[in-house]
């Protein structure tokens, strides 16, 4: 029996998983109010390095200043949220776990709202958001973990922390200036990738990339996560460390995603489950698939969000509208979801 039968990706799938996000990104780069053909997109990209390009300055600038950062953000956020969701579902052996299970997104939202209230600039807001997301998870861990307590008390603690920070968000909204700050906060909370820029990526991308890379490296070990406590211990692996590493990585990713593009729901739940239906539960193939399809999904949804109407539609609305029915169809076809 060959290795692919043990959950490794076949060579064909490997190529698909690598090429699909790249192709999608190249096509998405051309789509928008100002249409650019894929050939011109390639010309613009190579032009940056060769110094000569044949397309107009306008197209070149649109691609390099507006669309590339935005699509990079979409790729990262999609891959990241889907990886984090996948990790949390396995960690808690619960198919309903999402990147927000431990209260990261609520914490990060509060941080962002606070940033807006205090009148911080984009980067300042991103920093407070990231910090608050991490703080929320740290508080969740302090509250729920402990000797003899199972992971379910961590989940409960996460739900508490989530509602606490949601209340704090409401508080910030309540005291915010109703003319300027409140709409900004509300709009930000809906989620969107319109804030994408190289500066925000410089700060936001490293935690996402680092988290994904670490989880990718230990992906086979992640298979131990859904096992019961005793089973996991009897594997000879330090299950406590494995859990903490998983939580830190997933938190880094999620906090950074939320700090850049607000609460984008659904990706973290939808994509890993879609991948489980196709690739099974083995993280050797599940994790790469989640990364790749998460990125593709986000780029597509964001492209639709920015081109469908004259003004942009918040991306979280679209992820739900596209995601929910699609997911239900898939679930009914494949006979249920499972870890």
């Amino acid at each position: 029996m060959n290795l692919t039968k043990t959950g490794r990706l076949s060579a064909g799938w490997k190529i698909v998983l690598i090429l699909l996000p790249i192709m999608t990104a190249l096509i998405a780069l051309g789509i928008g109010r100002y249409f650019i053909t894929p050939a011109e997109v390639l010309d613009a990209i190579t032009g940056r390095f060769t110094g000569t390009y044949e397309i107009s300055d306008m197209a070149y600038k649109t691609i390099w200043n507006l669309r590339i950062p935005r699509i990079l953000l979409a790729l990262l956020a999609g891959a990241g949220l889907s990886t984090a969701g996948c990790a949390f579902q396995s960690l808690f052996a619960n198919p309903l776990a999402t990147p927000d299970t431990l209260g990261v997104a609520s914490g990060a939202s509060f941080g962002a709202a606070l940033g807006i209230l205090l009148g911080f600039d984009m980067l300042g807001m991103q920093v407070t958001s990231f910090a608050m997301g991490a703080l929320a998870v740290a508080l969740t861990w302090l509250g729920g973990s402990g000797k003899g307590r199972g992971l379910s008390s961590v989940v409960l603690s996460g739900i508490m922390m989530g509602s606490l920070f949601n209340a704090l968000v409401s508080l910030v909204k309540y005291v915010a200036d109703a003319e300027t700050q409140l709409p900004a906060i509300t709009y930000w909370l809906m989620g969107g990738l319109n804030s994408a820029g190289y500066r925000s990526l410089m700060f936001g991308a490293p935690p996402i990339i680092l988290g994904i890379v670490i989880l990718y490296i230990i992906r086979w070990r992640m298979n131990l996560l859904p096992l019961s406590e005793d089973e996991a211990k009897s594997s000879g692996v330090n299950i406590y460390t494995l859990r903490v590493v998983t939580i830190i990585c997933a938190t880094m990713i999620t906090a950074s995603c939320v700090s850049m593009c607000g609460q984008v729901g659904w990706v973290g739940l939808l994509i890993p489950h879609m991948c489980r239906m196709k690739f099974g539960s083995n993280h050797l193939s599940l994790l790469p698939a989640s990364i790749s399809f998460g990125a593709v999904f986000m780029v597509i949804v964001d492209t639709v969000a920015r081109t469908m109407t004259a003004s942009e539609i918040p991306v979280s609305i679209l992820t739900a509208i596209i995601g929910a029915p699609f997911f239900i169809i898939l679930m009914r076809k494949s006979g249920g979801w499972q870890l």
Partner: peptide
């Protein structure tokens, strides 16, 4: 709760 194949499960050993 995990849908590993028998072989994947055995490999965890």
């Amino acid at each position: 709760s995990s849908a590993y194949t028998a072989l994947e499960m055995v490999l965890l050993g």
